[in-house]
Every structure is written in structure tokens, then in C-alpha cells.
Design a protein around this nucleic acid. Structure first.
Lengths: 246, 246
DNA sequence: TTTCAATGTGTTAATTTTACACATTAAACG
DNA sequence: CGTTTAATGTGTAAAATTAACACATTGAAA
């Protein structure tokens, strides 16, 4: 419990000057963004990692990140990283969590804002020849540099949750996809097996898939129908989920 | 698309010194936390607001916040604010989102990390006499200072979502509560009406409520039974939600 | 042409959710 | 003290959703 005088002090009105002085001097901290960039290839969920910057973490992999510039919006910094690394604009990007332990970075106090991004691996052309940058199967990601393992784990859990509530997953697929590809995607993200008939029934019942009247090409088996997702229809009809369920 | 040489540059290994210099000099930014402190009183969801610090926003209400100290963990800063304002330790606190538009604060570049907190209004003793600090009915919160309306809206949506997935709500209630209080709480948070019999059935079926064999006291009507929530049992049995539902 | 592997399709049972009404209890009131 | 009032406590049936499950068809590969 606080005394009245302590409260008085806490509540005292600050002048703009006072705050400006705090903002400009003593209390500044380096801020970075780190991006967990997901892709989907060969029916596996992948993440783009880079070899660590630092000697301390030599040989370890880390997330793609950079400091935020003082005159740069936070989201813009995340888009900058993505553009830099994948050449892609207009990608799906969502902020997840901010990690701010004092000792989390060996170079000093750096607070980092984590984002995850979903990209279609067909579209990007990254210089993978450069072996500093590499797609990793998410199932084999362990022991990342810094606190990046924790950040990665947080982002993948967020993705697992979000993908069940919103049609995010389509960002990882080509515009035209088969139901098998769609199911493989959900199985890879959620790390579970699903019943094929029930899966199809579910998506058809939602009524957001458009039958393109085309078939898969160059598959080593009977070709399936191709569909696209109708985002306009989804935006109109999307529902508020209500239902207590611990 | 980037050229090879641009990529080379982007991927070049930084020395710890190089990063340290960036961290210590040019790229530092003021970082704050803002807390949306929820309470539940008279069957209404409330939020604790303070009159704005700044002349620019004179007369407007704002969230409780402060700059993060350079040697202070991010979460610790949020707990500090709460302790300072409510006298409470060990409160429920969850990070929600980081707001980082360059122009969001008139005093200069300040990136803010938003948290929400759930407290039992019985427990705290804040100096409400001091009319700078006040509980507001969430339904009447409009036109906050800075970008605090956006932050508030984001936090309340997060609360609405979370409360349906996890037993957070109990942080807003006394240890012993009646089913009416519990239902009023959910109705206030979600801003909907629920069927009383179905609500009770739902919670009894979950089997986390413990019948305390006590009755409400001092209510102006037939007293109801009192219950507590069995958190230990919940921790053991809590389920992973699986089910695609857009 | 045979083999193989994946597509496409429906029904039934089980579970969950919704809608809905009446007797009981204790406090408040005259 | 008896009556009124307002909230508690309880069950069932219909509707909707989910889960389990098998076989004929197609086209590519061998």
C-alpha cells in the first residue's frame, strides 16, 4: 500500500518538457524486430533461419532480425527485414510478443519485438546458395542462438492457434491448391493427423472454397481438383467465436 | 528482388563490437509500458484510468504507464506500475501488443508495450479520493489520450478472447463466488446475455468448481451457493483446443 | 494391361449445444 | 406474521455438430 504522499508524487502532472527530457536522454533502449518466416514445402512446415551474427553463437542458427531505426514505424521495420531477406512485399505478417529481459542479448540491452510471417515458397527467390540462409524443417529446430528458441516456440504456438480461427494458412499455399495440399498444410502446422472425409466436409460446409474446374498437373497420381479461397466472402461472413471452453 | 551483392552485404557477419556500438548509440528509442487494469464491480467491467499527464490532452483520460528503465525487465516494469497504482503484487498480468508508430507520442519517439491486468477490486485500496485516478465503466470509455483508445480496444478484445479459453476471469472475482456472479462476469466481459441453465450446466460439466457448502451473505434475495475454482485440477486437465473454425 | 496410390463420396452414432418452465427459498415489506 | 418479490436450483427434448468409418474411381507408373 502506498502512502498518500507517494501517491501524490506518482500522480503529479508531468510537463511535456519533463517527459521529453526523459525520452531523449537517460531512458532509451535499443529495439529490434525478429521475424519467424514460415514456408510450406514438400508437405512440411519450414522456417527461414540465418547463421548467427556473433562469435558467441558461432555455428548456431538464429531468426532474421535487425534494430529498429529511430524514425521507422515498428511494423515497417519488420517489413524491411522481410523485403531484405526474401525480396517479397505484401506478405502476411503478424506481431506476436515482445521479449524484454535485460540480459537477453550479449551486446547490451536490446528489447525485441517478434513477428511471424507466412510466405509462399514458390514466389520468393532467395539466394539460398548463400549458405548463411536456409530453410529448416520446423520439427528439427532446436538450440537457436540468443533467446530465439523461446521466440520461435512462442510464434509457432501462435500460428497453431491462429490458423484454426482465421484463414491464414492460405498464405503458405499457391493461389490454386488441392484439398490434399490444404489438409497436408493443416496437419503440418498442427502436427496431427486428420480424417480426410471430415476435413473436406468441414471446408465445403464453410463455403469459402471456389472450385476452379481445373485439375492438378504433374502429380504422380490421380490429379485432384484445384480450389481457391474466397477472401471477399470470408470478410463478409466471418463470425465472432463465442463459446467458453477451457 | 535483391542483387547478390546486396544480399552479401545484408548477410555479412557483424562483430559484437559493431552491434554494441549500434546498441549504445544511434539506435536507441524510449520504451514504455501501458497497463489496462480491469476490475469487476456492481456486475460491470471497469477499467482504471488516470487523467492525462500532458497539457495537450488535458481533461482526457489515459492508461497507466511509465517508461521502462534501462536495467529493468519489461514485465518488471509492468508489475512496477501496478504495484505503484494499486498497491497489489501477484496480480494477473499479460502482455498484449506493442505499439510503435513513430508519431504516436507527442514527446518524441516512444514505443509502448501494452499489458492488461485483472484485479479483484475488493483487495486493492487505491486512493480514489485523489480524483486523478478513477474506475470507469468500460462501456463508457471513449476518446482516451494519445493512442490509448486503440490500445484499450486491443486489450479488451484480447481479454474477451482469452477469457473463453482460459479461466482468467476468476482473477476478477473474490475467492468465493456464486454462479450468478460468475455469469454476470462473463456477460459483462463478452457483452452478451447467456442462458442461466446452460451456463451452469457448462461449468458443472467442466468439473473445476468446488462447492464450498457455504451460502452468500447479505444479498437482498435468496442466497446462492458459494464456489471456488480448482486451479490445480485445471492445470492437470486443461486441453489443447483443436478444431478449425473461421 | 496390371498395379499402385490418391481422389471422391455418405451414413450412422455420439456428443454438444440450444431452447425452454416451474417449484423453492429467503429477504423485504406492509 | 403473512404476503409479495426476486433470485436460486433443476431436466428434457430437439437441433446441430463432430467423429468414425469403406469402397469404387481415376490416372500415372511400371
Amino acid at each position: 500500500m502506498l502512502t498518500d504522499s507517494q501517491l501524490k508524487q506518482a500522480n503529479s502532472v508531468k510537463t511535456l518538457q519533463k517527459i521529453q527530457s526523459e525520452v531523449e536522454n537517460i531512458n532509451r533502449i535499443a529495439l529490434s524486430v525478429d521475424c519467424v518466416i514460415f514456408g510450406f514445402d514438400e508437405s512440411k512446415l519450414k522456417v527461414l533461419l540465418i547463421r548467427s551474427d556473433l562469435k558467441k553463437y558461432q555455428g548456431k542458427w538464429s531468426l532474421l532480425g535487425d534494430l529498429v531505426f529511430p524514425a521507422e514505424d515498428l511494423d515497417a521495420a519488420a517489413y524491411r527485414i522481410l523485403k531484405q531477406r526474401t525480396g517479397l512485399s505484401d506478405v502476411f505478417l503478424e506481431q506476436v510478443h515482445t521479449f524484454g529481459r535485460v540480459q537477453r542479448h550479449p551486446a547490451g540491452r536490446v528489447v525485441t519485438v517478434a513477428y511471424y510471417s507466412l510466405i509462399n515458397v514458390q514466389h520468393h527467390k532467395l539466394n539460398i546458395l548463400d549458405n548463411e540462409l536456409h530453410w529448416h524443417d520446423v520439427k528439427n529446430v532446436t538450440d537457436l542462438a540468443f533467446d530465439h528458441q523461446e521466440i520461435f516456440d512462442t510464434c509457432i504456438r501462435q500460428l497453431q492457434k491462429r490458423v484454426q480461427e482465421h484463414p491464414l494458412g492460405f498464405n503458405l499455399l499457391p493461389k490454386k491448391f488441392s484439398l490434399r495440399e490444404l489438409q497436408n498444410l493443416y496437419e503440418a502446422i498442427l502436427d496431427i493427423k486428420m480424417d480426410r472425409r471430415n476435413f473436406r466436409k468441414k471446408f465445403f460446409a464453410m463455403d469459402f472454397l471456389v472450385d476452379l474446374k481445373e485439375m492438378e498437373q504433374n502429380v504422380p497420381h490421380r490429379p485432384g481438383k484445384l480450389y481457391k479461397f474466397n477472401f471477399e466472402k470470408y470478410e463478409k461472413k466471418k463470425k465472432k467465436l463465442i463459446g467458453i471452453d477451457f
